[in-house]
């Protein structure tokens, strides 16, 4: 039971990293990217290819650790580099046009991988176990290790994005979302900050991809399809564009709901759960277009204050 929980926790945490990165692009900087799964794929395949290229036949733990770190870094840098490659031409576009261009990018990545024999083509890529072997008796430590790594990645993402958003660089990004023209006239370099948001978001998607490759040890192009991109977008939109805790909350809720439906529904109607998700997105857009938390963080909500800050004098009504 714990094993399954940790397995799911790992997948969920990696989705959180993806969604947080997309939230920086779509939620905080106000662009509309639909290609986040493309960066995820680049990170996963870069890490995979790098691992296959450098791993010796029977790696020791030290070597395994080195390869792991190297490939993770490679995944991040490759995805970030793709952020530049896609960003420079595409970021001149706005709104719908940017969405379509990035969507096209995601598809191109998948199709190129699918047709590149060196990357395993449609069969996919298989990498060796590096840190721990996932055998019958080591299953639990294996998933525990990756759950810990994935949660660490979430923490690192939240930390980094929070630090950026509370700096003048982050303010410039939010200013672009609020009013692009005013931001530019006040000295904000639009291209620089849009690109920075793109690179940061892509880099974290690359990190998620690298961890995903090492965790599952088998990746296939079809896992990185548009549907993945739409799911990530759904987490961001449902949680609230411009709210990190909202993204985390929505990812957890939707992931759990998805798995519950998968297990509870009889097999013949399981495919309907995607309909349920689409329906949910429509309902959210009608009933609460700003998402669960809007642009607030969890600790800024009224409910949170009522629960945890009752005694705080700052919250007492003014006399």
């Amino acid at each position: 039971m714990l094993y399954y929980l940790l397995e799911h926790l790992t997948h969920m945490a990696l989705l959180m990293v993806l969604a947080l990165g997309l939230n920086l692009i779509n939620g905080y900087t106000g662009m509309f990217s639909l290609g986040h799964h493309g960066f995820f794929a680049v990170g996963a395949y870069a890490a995979g290819a790098l691992t296959l290229a450098v791993t010796p036949a029977a790696p020791s733990l030290g070597v395994g650790l080195g390869v792991f770190a190297l490939s993770a870094l490679g995944g991040v840098l490759a995805a970030a580099a793709f952020g530049v490659v896609v960003g420079v031409p595409c970021l001149r576009l706005r709104g719908d046009y940017l969405a379509i261009a990035t969507l096209g990018f995601g598809e191109i990545v998948r199709i190129i991988i699918q047709n590149t024999e060196a990357l395993g083509g449609a069969r996919g890529l298989e990498v060796p176990y590096l840190l721990l072997t996932r055998g019958v008796d080591t299953q639990l430590p294996y998933v525990a290790l990756y759950a810990a790594l994935a949660l660490l990645a979430v923490a690192a993402t939240v930390w980094t994005l929070r630090a950026v958003l509370r700096s003048n660089h982050g303010r410039a990004m939010i200013a672009i979302r609020e009013d692009e023209i005013a931001a530019e006239l006040l000295g904000v370099n639009l291209m620089k900050y849009k690109l920075a948001a793109f690179i940061l978001g892509a880099g974290f998607a690359g990190l998620a991809g690298a961890l995903y490759t090492h965790f599952t040890t088998q990746i296939e192009p079809r896992e990185f399809g548009l549907l993945k991109g739409i799911y990530i977008l759904l987490y961001v939109v449902l949680g609230g564009m411009g709210s990190m805790s909202g993204t985390l909350l929505a990812t957890a809720l939707l992931y759990i709901l998805d798995k519950m439906l998968l297990n509870l529904l009889p097999p013949e109607i399981q495919a309907w759960r995607e309909v349920a998700f689409a329906l949910m997105l429509v309902l959210v857009m009608i009933l609460r277009p700003q998402g669960i938390l809007g642009q607030k963080e969890l600790y800024q909500t009224r409910l949170w204050r009522r629960l945890f800050k009752r005694a705080s004098p700052a919250e007492a009504p003014a006399p």
Partner: peptide
């Protein structure tokens, strides 16, 4: 027409 960053 005032252009402040409203949500900030």
């Amino acid at each position: 027409n005032i252009r402040l960053f409203d949500a900030m």
